[in-house]
Design a protein around this nucleic acid. Structure first.
Lengths: 347, 347
DNA sequence: GTTAGCACTCTTCGATTTTGAGTGCTAACA
DNA sequence: TGTTAGCACTCAAAATCGAAGAGTGCTAAC
């Protein structure tokens, strides 16, 4: 971690100025620029000396001799942690409207991804909410036709799952009713961890001749309750990466886009994000810090949102390391609170 | 359409040779190459004369003077329609295994997309099957808790939909049973078109005090039965386009990748494909022929697959115009029949 | 400690040249 | 009459060259 002894105030100011201008221009920044556009009133030569020190300390690097300096990962990290001041951001009415319209959760989340992408000019992702400790709320079996039973399973947060179960011979209405009763009274409010072998054995016993149906049902329940399976991830603005030359060479572009298409890696990012419990729920990964290998030349900002009932989802922004962190963090926070409002208005 | 008078056999042979070598190399092909690598035994000068004719007829074009020739869209079209001979293709055991493993439909389709992408080196898409004339098979209402009813709707092909309906006061078990009976006897086997206002009015009347629940339920049914809503599209190998220089400049790449991310355009492609009833179910769009604007510099090959019950889905391959049509068509046909087998084995 | 000045390094950009593939045309040939 | 050798010509792509310019590091003076 950065000690204060390492950098005096002047060095900090210079570093700040370097990073800020680099975020805007994307070009290496030289000593002359800093000397002119800050209120330090130092000559370029002095700046050069300081820059030389900063480079030695690892906060900035030179792409090649006789080029200006650009921030290193360590420099960015310092910037995000200490230097950056967050500016107030006005509400954008148009976005507001876009979000209002979305009626269903799924559409809403897609919309969120899109709004965020157009608003920030980075690539974005939004995961559907999942529940790490999900509880059973309701089970119902019904005969669809002679050979098939449909099991409707409602989890906390009104997540609905269905499974079709095939049986040799139809169950009578009466038996079905009994079975439903049995299942509901026994399993209601239970989480997946609580449904153990002993319980299953007991259930089967009570079900008598229908024990094999119980087995199938419990399999279905266990299957349905697995969260990863049905976490969806929506992405938007992937092609925004082409706006940043440092990411749009074939090699990088290919890696990043692959990660966005094969959702596997994003899933990884989401689970990792959700597992870390931070106070604000917002995390910044710079370069190598990211859990997604394919994005090691990017910065990734994630936020978690909550629905109550323990349901949590993740929003992510992926862009170049010279990302406009102030803007992004601000947008994230706004979205977070907006989603919060929406979901809590609904209930 | 191409008349036979326009091209004698020698011209056809030369055109064939040009296209074939261009498909392999991706570079404009000159007269010398053709004269050397065919059994025509003609000098390059003669070939040049013929090529000049072929250009005048619009089958090939010259990117610039003093370059070789490349096929025009018209040339490709002739090739696909007449010239191409499909070579036999050996079964690939590894793919076979990959496909076998997938247990659920969703996974299977994702797998199909992936296999096809790695096998062909093009970008691929697979749509989940939808039913253009879907019928209601089963409806069941249940109380989840005091204020919420869950409606489970099963459509032909065992497609299951759920809707949650809020009510002011709970329905008694008895009433629920009646309502279920009423709904099932009335609506069973009906398609969306058959559920008209008269029927709805009659239903509401019979339901008595629960008429407003009926209204909500029917809304839910209508909503659930809409096909577009829940057609999913899986893509794979989008980044394969970077393998073809003619598609990997920023402009094109961005357009194509956007189309793959925002599924809107692909949905368009699917509906268009499904609406055209061809004998083999395989279609080839070359360049401007494609329904997807963003892919006008590509060739698109689509195939439809069937599940019975009128459920149909689409597989698509998107690549450069100089696509290996033989290989692609062969792969498509194989996949088609393989999927057919699988789905009919299951039932 | 700060700064002016200067030599030096590298990239970038444009202009120019070179190279090589490929054509079209003409004249000769079978 | 169709085929071919030969040659002049064209043009894109690659290589070469020479500023121009941005920026640095170092030294010496303030």
């Amino acid at each position: 971690m950065v000690s204060e002894h390492e950098l005096n105030e002047r060095k900090l100011k210079i570093l700040h100025a370097i990073i800020k201008t680099y975020l805007e221009t994307g070009e290496p920044v030289g000593s002359r620029t800093i000397s002119k556009y800050t209120d330090l009133n130092l000559s370029s030569a002095t700046i050069r000396n300081e820059m030389s020190d900063l480079e030695e300390l690892g906060y900035i690097v030179q792409p090649h001799t006789s080029a200006g300096r650009i921030p290193s990962d360590k420099g960015y990290r310092l910037y995000v942690d200490m230097l950056m001041e967050e500016k107030e951001q006005e509400l954008n009415v148009r976005e507001e409207q876009m979000l209002e319209k979305a009626d269903k959760m799924e559409k809403l989340l897609k919309q969120v991804a899109r709004v965020l992408a157009t608003n920030t000019n980075y690539a974005t992702m939004v995961s559907t909410p999942v529940n790490s400790a999900n509880k059973l709320k309701f089970i119902q079996l019904s005969m669809v036709d002679e050979e098939q039973i449909i099991a409707v399973i409602v989890l906390g947060g009104n997540v609905i799952k269905n499974r079709i179960i095939s049986v040799e011979e139809p169950l009578s209405n009466e038996n079905l009713l009994k079975l439903n009763m049995l299942l509901n009274t026994t399993l209601n409010g239970m989480s997946i961890e609580e449904i153990n072998l002993g319980l299953i054995a007991r259930l089967k016993e009570q079900a008598g001749i229908h024990s094999e149906v119980i087995g199938s049902v419990l399999d279905a329940v266990a299957d349905a309750i697995q969260l990863e399976e049905d976490m969806q991830i929506y992405t938007s603005g992937t092609t925004n990466i082409f706006k940043y030359p440092e990411l749009s060479d074939k090699q990088s572009a290919q890696e990043i886009i692959s990660a966005f298409e094969e959702k596997q890696q994003l899933t990884e990012l989401v689970t990792q994000t959700l597992s870390k419990e931070e106070n604000t729920g917002i995390q910044v990964y710079i370069g190598d810090e990211t859990p997604v290998q394919n994005m090691k030349d990017c910065s990734v900002v994630t936020a978690t949102y909550e629905l109550g009932d323990g349901m949590k989802g993740t929003i992510g922004i992926i862009g170049p390391k010279r990302m406009d962190y102030e803007h992004v963090l601000k947008s994230m926070k706004r979205l977070q609170s907006e989603l919060d409002q929406m979901f809590h208005k609904k209930e």
